[in-house]
């Protein structure tokens, strides 16, 4: 019984090895290949060329990183103009509507004087934990305000932190331009034109009153536009106790841990929160207030490489990326 609609010349029968007596020649051949590969892996050069099937292919991850392609998408971010601090989002709700898992929640800004809607968002909450990174929001956005970030190191021990609010979603345009130069240059002109039109319709600080922006005259204070029914910005929520320092820990380890925590607290800007308990003995319970100033701070184009990286590592990474770019002929 055969299905006859396939022509005979289209079909071939795979060749089986049905020999009953064998003296291990198949295994010997296999081991020969493995040995050849093993030698190449030990003494060969590291390579990343797609044509190679021998040699070393490892990437020593935290130090070495592969270059992410421009189209790479991880989590959505929102853009603002470096010069004026104006956010590109106009709360048109296109992304909220298309989002397959429905994780985008936008509150439209309203003019406090007239109560009329303004082309800006009062708040923008995105559930990073449920986002499926499909990229539809960035695809449909007519104002090029929402884009997909390349930063994938988002792990946290604090789950509620993954409901990301407007302050922490904002990145300057220069950041996006650095991670996706050609994709931005394709849309730059129309995006900026649309932004200029929208700025005209935004009274006061509306549209640039979120987060702590690096450049420009952005208002830092969160002006908390009173909008009926709007959820208050997710700022100022206690981050919960950080793991207490164990009782059975050796002295020097405790000292080291305390100093690390103090340094971290200083970096966050909320110096007093972490610095105070240093003198006290264990257990130390640290309560960190998640202020927008502490957690938002998008640190410009370098952020793509990682904030905590040492200088030489960063230089090395830059060199690798340049080489890759040259290889690709950009």
């Amino acid at each position: 019984m055969t299905l006859s609609h396939l022509a005979t010349e289209d079909v071939f029968v795979v060749e089986r090895n049905d020999a009953d007596f064998r003296a291990g020649q198949g295994m010997t051949k296999g081991l020969g290949i493995v040995f050849r590969k093993f030698r190449k892996a030990l003494f060969g050069k590291p390579n990343s060329d797609r044509a190679d099937t021998e040699g070393q292919f490892n990437v020593q991850y935290p130090e070495e990183r592969l270059v992410l392609p421009e189209a790479y998408r991880n989590m959505p971010i929102l853009l603002y103009d470096d010069a004026t601090g104006h956010e590109l989002c106009t709360s048109c709700f296109q992304c909220e509507r298309i989002c397959p898992p429905q994780v985008i929640h936008i509150t439209q800004a309203k003019d406090p004087a007239t109560g009329k809607p303004v082309p800006a968002a009062a708040n923008f909450v995105l559930e990073y934990d449920t986002c499926m990174s499909c990229g539809y929001c960035a695809e449909v956005c007519p104002f090029d305000a929402i884009k997909m970030d390349h930063d994938f190191e988002l792990s946290t021990g604090n789950h509620p932190e993954l409901d990301v609010n407007y302050d922490r979603l904002l990145r300057p345009i220069s950041y996006y331009e650095a991670i996706a130069p050609t994709m931005w240059s394709d849309v730059k002109e129309q995006a900026m034109k649309k932004l200029q039109n929208n700025i005209k319709r935004r009274p006061g600080a509306i549209g640039r009153d979120h987060g702590q922006k690096v450049k420009g005259g952005a208002a830092v204070a969160v002006a908390a536009t009173p909008v009926a029914g709007a959820a208050p910005a997710a700022a100022a929520k206690p981050r919960g106790p950080v793991a207490a320092i164990g009782k059975n820990m050796p002295e020097e380890k405790v000292a080291k841990l305390i100093s690390i925590r103090a340094a971290n607290a200083a970096k966050r800007g909320g110096g007093d929160a972490g610095a105070a308990p240093v003198a006290e003995a264990a257990p130390i319970v640290e309560t960190v207030v998640d202020t927008p100033a502490a957690s938002a701070a998008p640190s410009g184009p370098v952020a793509a490489i990682g904030q905590n990286m040492s200088e030489d590592k960063r230089a090395k990474l830059e060199a690798i990326r340049a080489a890759k770019r040259a290889q690709r002929g950009e």
Binding site: Q25, K29, A51, E54
Partner: peptide, 21 residues
Amino acid sequence: KLMQGLPHYFDDFEGLLLNSE
């Protein structure tokens, strides 16, 4: 480039296991 490498992979894979006892 990938296609240059693939036949080597097929050959290696077959050589390693196809007739392995």
